[in-house]
Design a binder for these strands. Structure first.
Length: 938
RNA sequence: GCUCGGAUGGUGGAAUUGGUAGACACGUUGGACUUAAAAUCCAAUGACCAUUGCGGUCGUGCGGGUUCAAGUCCCGCUCCGAGUACCA
């Protein structure tokens, strides 16, 4: 018998479950520490070896913190609403709740087998009514608030109504739609109830509006900007077009500045913060109003270069703007309408594809320059985006390349306003390297001076002002889906009405079919019972709708990011039925101390959740403004796909070495399970695997068929998935945990390679043999030697330091070195093995628990404090001291205090680098600093 | 295009943040123990030259620079990865 990981792991997993070892208490004398993982979406494919990487790291840290005397909250749950379960339901008629439950069961089993120290008593599932009740509740709170710029926080909508009644909205300093008209108090009062409600939607933090959305026909739903990658849907890669629809949106733009500022206060990876900064996209510039000729309206543009105002030679509007219809000259009407229609038909991808082709059309109208009063032609062109700035740009061809290209293409004038710069070939976009020319009162000024001067001038004559613009768009919140949180709203006279808080949760109705209705309404339109009776205050059948007391309910559901925007607070108080999180629990746990997850959520979940956090903080419902103090992105574990090479049109496959450069071959993926570590293919296995290979001819090279390899994302469809179950079966969970950490730095993406796992497995076996020689226990209670103690305490120091700095790969190495050295010393003293076992405990908890028990300890290892390094053991001889010279004639030595000066001198003289430079000079003075550092000044 | 990362043996990766580059592990080669295999252990393993010893030279993507000392700092390139993309 040797290291019997199967028995050991089973035993301890059962022990932890039975004793609820990792249950966290909301009251404790100990300091608290909250370690959070991004909870998984339970997909049908189960976990592959890439998924647990972050969970392993967070588990190691959690266990370490417990050993360090912290009350650790380390929960887990499921982001269980989502598309795949719904698509499976569409195909099979199986209720998504059922498949979700099955998948969760499988996930739980896989997670348990890896020995994670989760507190499962706090499990959350976003698709459970007990949970989404509170998601709906937050939605209603958002509906009930607006963002006050003066207070710089969310305020109840009732306050806004009060202001409207007193003074209308002219003096209101709040975030609202760009199209919001100005009204007086009497106008507000003259509004009907319906009109008032409609007007308030311009201000509410979640609002219903006719919006241009990203429509994905294949998925049958709208997508948020972060769900589109390169112009196609993130999920499935389908085409995305623009479409106007009534949609719920979240006014995240109100929080743009605070979301930006908050980044400076949190310990998140710099790259991720940079991504969020770019996504928010703050730019400083000015608004400029251009009067339309023979028209009462003005066109407002946003520009970051108001200093180039005198270089404007035309104006371009986004074709989607309503204003376009209004101002088009009758002569140009046909051309403009044709162009607008064409743009709408094109998908986002097509539009992105021909960035180089200039397209556009003249509207036949003109605006007047605010200073020179020159006539400036108005064009439309799809290089101008409707949803950035005001959807209109003042075109300065000499200073902007796109304007330049547009001008060249349509033969529009280009006016050079830069002193001593040629614009023959391209626009001049450098700021600050020259001065402005031909620009009236700006002539001769630098970029900075011109900016200041022109903004002042614009403000003085009321035709513009300095302003800040953000790229961040409001987030569309409606999804035409079944498997999501119902939006707790019903429609009365076409106006959305919120359900009362006491009626939550509004639970998902049963439907026959999960597809949209024949009329194209979302799947909830299939429900027979989906109307709200305002008298009975309950959900009733659709047939009862009379628009007097019974009204239709909202058919859209919430997007995937709704539940994940606040779930981390639910863990603190998962069973509370009176509140989303109890005040006391929130005050105790306060915030997440360490959050682990992938960087792919940078502009999605991690931004939206910060937004909700700030909102709930404004309402005094949460204690902090940023919920995650520190965040670490774990890198993806990639798969190593295997390819065989088919000669086109044949059934012949060539071994990789046989392929000549001239050969045309088609690479075809085969399951990595049929390939060994030397890239040799199990031909018989492949033949049985798929019929296309059954009768195929495999051309061998030196008797074997070698496959080609390529590193890519691990996925079922690429046949490169390595299942953790197989690894656990073969090597055990402890080996898997340590190996995943050993693979490389936690933040780095790295390819999985099963071959290397034997090194880690050998290490655990070696560790086991420190206790046993075959069947015989070799542990004794004799005093360990100084050498053994030195090895141990060096390792304690390194392991502690490395875990604290999340350098788990070097930490595993340190443990390996330690065990190697102890093995060669034949060190079996329990005084060494006990602390060593504690060091191993976060990484290989099963084996450590077992050996701890074998050492005769009464308490389990989880209750024991981590060992501390005793510095006095660390240095015993003078020969190997690191000596460093820092250029200021000073040496730094790490020594223990009981050394005599002769020993120190010897240590210094041992260092040839120092000797060479010092040319034999001897130290003038010794400075002995208490505490092991000694400075020697020459 | 812009922004942010990165480049170290056959491979994954170390290097106290300016101080003996290549820790640890995989792989490879040789050896021990075995009838044999597995398991385990030992040795070698950056490249080149010398191997009748010792040794020597070159080496962290490329070219410069600072320094007694550079993988690490500065300047200029090349390549790779990620994010973003007509953002006015």
């Amino acid at each position: 018998m040797g290291y019997d990981f199967k028995t050991i792991e089973k035993k301890w997993q059962a022990h932890w479950a039975k004793n609820q070892t990792f249950k966290a208490d909301n009251h404790s004398e100990k300091p608290k520490y909250y370690v959070l993982d991004m909870f998984p979406y339970p997909s049908g494919a189960g976990l592959h070896v890439g998924h647990p990487l972050g969970y392993i790291a967070s588990d190691i840290y959690s266990r370490f913190k417990r050993h360090k005397g912290f009350n650790v909250l380390h929960p887990q749950g499921y982001d269980s609403f989502g598309l795949p379960a719904e698509q499976y339901a569409i195909q099979t008629g199986q209720h998504p709740a059922k498949t979700t439950q099955e998948n969760i069961n499988r996930y739980r089993q896989q997670l348990d087998q890896m020995g994670f120290s989760f507190d499962w008593s706090r499990e959350v599932r976003t698709s459970e009514p007990d949970f989404y009740k509170w998601t709906q509740w937050i939605f209603l709170l958002l509906f009930d608030h607006y963002y006050c710029n003066s207070a710089n926080k969310a305020q109840p909508i009732t306050q806004l109504i009060e202001q409207f009644e007193r003074k209308g909205n002219e003096t209101v300093n709040a975030v609202c739609d760009a199209s919001t008209p100005n009204i007086t108090a009497s106008e507000w009062k003259s509004f009907s109830e319906t009109e008032q409600q409609e007007f308030l939607l311009h201000y509410r933090l979640t609002y219903l509006s006719e919006a241009e959305v990203n429509w994905c026909a294949d998925l049958g739903t709208v997508l948020a900007n972060d769900e589109i990658i390169n112009g196609v849907s993130e999920r499935g890669g389908f085409a995305v077009t623009k479409k106007k629809m009534k949609q719920w949106s979240m006014r995240i733009g109100a929080y743009a500045e605070r979301l930006l500022q908050g980044l400076d206060r949190i310990d998140w990876p710099e790259s991720l913060k940079e991504m969020q900064r770019n996504w928010i996209g703050k730019s400083i510039g000015a608004k400029v109003f251009f009067q339309i000729e023979n028209h009462e309206k003005r066109i407002e543009v946003f520009t970051t270069r108001p200093d180039t105002l005198f270089g404007v030679t035309f104006m371009t509007l986004a074709p989607e703007l309503d204003l376009v219809q209004e101002i088009t000259h009758p002569d140009q009407k046909e051309a403009v309408e044709k162009y607008v229609e064409e743009t709408q038909k094109r998908t986002q991808r097509e539009r992105m594809a021909d960035v180089k082709n200039c397209t556009g059309v003249f509207t036949g109208s003109y605006v007047l320059h605010p200073f020179t009063k020159e006539r400036i032609p108005i064009w439309i062109g799809d290089y101008v985006l409707a949803d950035y700035g005001t959807g209109a740009v003042m075109a300065v061809p000499c200073g902007d390349q796109r304007d330049y290209d547009f001008a060249k293409h349509f033969d529009l004038p280009i006016k050079n306003i830069f002193s001593g710069v040629s614009i023959e070939k391209e626009a001049f976009t450098d700021k600050g390297t020259t001065v402005i020319d031909h620009s009236d009162f700006l002539t001769g000024l630098s970029y900075e001076e011109a900016m200041k001067t022109v903004i002042k001038a614009l403000e003085d004559q009321g035709s513009g002002e300095g302003t800040i613009n953000y790229r961040l768009r409001d987030a569309i919140f409606s999804r035409q889906r079944y498997w999501g949180e119902p939006i707790p709203m019903y429609y009365q006279e076409g106006l959305p009405q919120p359900l009362d808080l006491k009626h939550l949760p509004l639970t998902l109705p049963e439907v026959e079919k999960y597809l949209p209705t024949p009329e194209g309404a979302p799947p909830l339109g299939n429900a027979e019972t989906w109307a709200w009776d305002t008298q009975k205050e309950q959900v009733v059948a659709n047939v009862l709708i009379d628009h007097k007391t019974v009204f239709p309910l909202e058919l859209n559901t919430m997007p995937g990011w709704a539940g994940s925007s606040w779930y981390f607070y639910r863990y603190m108080d998962a069973t509370n039925t009176n509140s989303f999180v109890g005040k006391e629990a929130a005050a105790y746990w306060k915030e997440v101390d360490l959050y682990l997850g992938g960087s792919e959520h940078a502009t999605g979940h991690l931004l939206y959740s910060r937004f909700w956090q700030k909102f709930l903080f404004d309402l005094d419902l949460l204690p902090v403004e940023e919920y995650a103090k520190k965040l670490i992105n774990q890198g993806m574990i990639l798969g190593t796909s295997a390819f065989v090479y088919r000669k086109p049109g044949t059934q012949t496959y060539l071994s990789k070495e046989l392929i000549q450069e001239a050969d045309q071959t088609e690479p075809i993926r085969v399951d990595v399970g049929f390939v060994n570590s030397a890239d040799e293919l199990d031909i018989e296995g492949v033949r049985r695997w798929q019929p296309q290979f059954e009768k195929a001819t495999f051309k061998l090279h030196n008797g074997v068929y070698k496959v080609g390899r390529e590193v890519e994302k691990m996925s079922k469809s690429k046949y490169n998935v390595v299942n953790p179950d197989t690894i656990c079966e073969q090597y055990g969970a402890d080996t898997l945990r340590m190996y995943e950490m050993f693979l490389g730095p936690i933040e780095q993406a790295k390819p999985w390679n099963t071959a290397g796992i034997s090194g880690v497995h050998n290490f655990l076996k070696k560790y086991w043999r420190l206790f046993y020689d075959g069947e015989q226990s070799v542990v004794h209670n004799e005093e360990p030697s100084k050498e053994e103690l030195k090895i141990l305490h060096e390792t304690i120091k390194k392991v502690t330091h490395d875990i604290e700095h999340f350098s788990f790969n070097t930490c595993v190495s340190a443990l390996m070195i330690c065990v190697n050295e102890l093995t060669s010393l034949k060190s079996h003293s329990s005084e060494i093995l006990s602390p060593l076992t504690l060091l191993l405990s976060p990484f290989a908890p099963h084996l450590a628990s077992e050996m701890w028990e074998q050492l005769g300890n009464k308490t389990t290892i989880d209750q024991v404090d981590f060992p501390l390094a005793n510095e006095s053991y660390l240095i015993q001889d003078t020969k190997n001291y690191p000596v460093s010279f820092n250029g200021k004639m000073r040496f730094t030595l790490e020594l223990s205090l009981d050394l005599d000066q002769a020993a120190i001198q010897e240590a210094v003289l041992q260092d040839s680098r120092a000797l060479e430079y010092l040319d034999g000079k001897t130290p003038k003075k010794w400075i002995v600093v208490p505490n092991k550092i000694i400075n020697i000044v020459y």
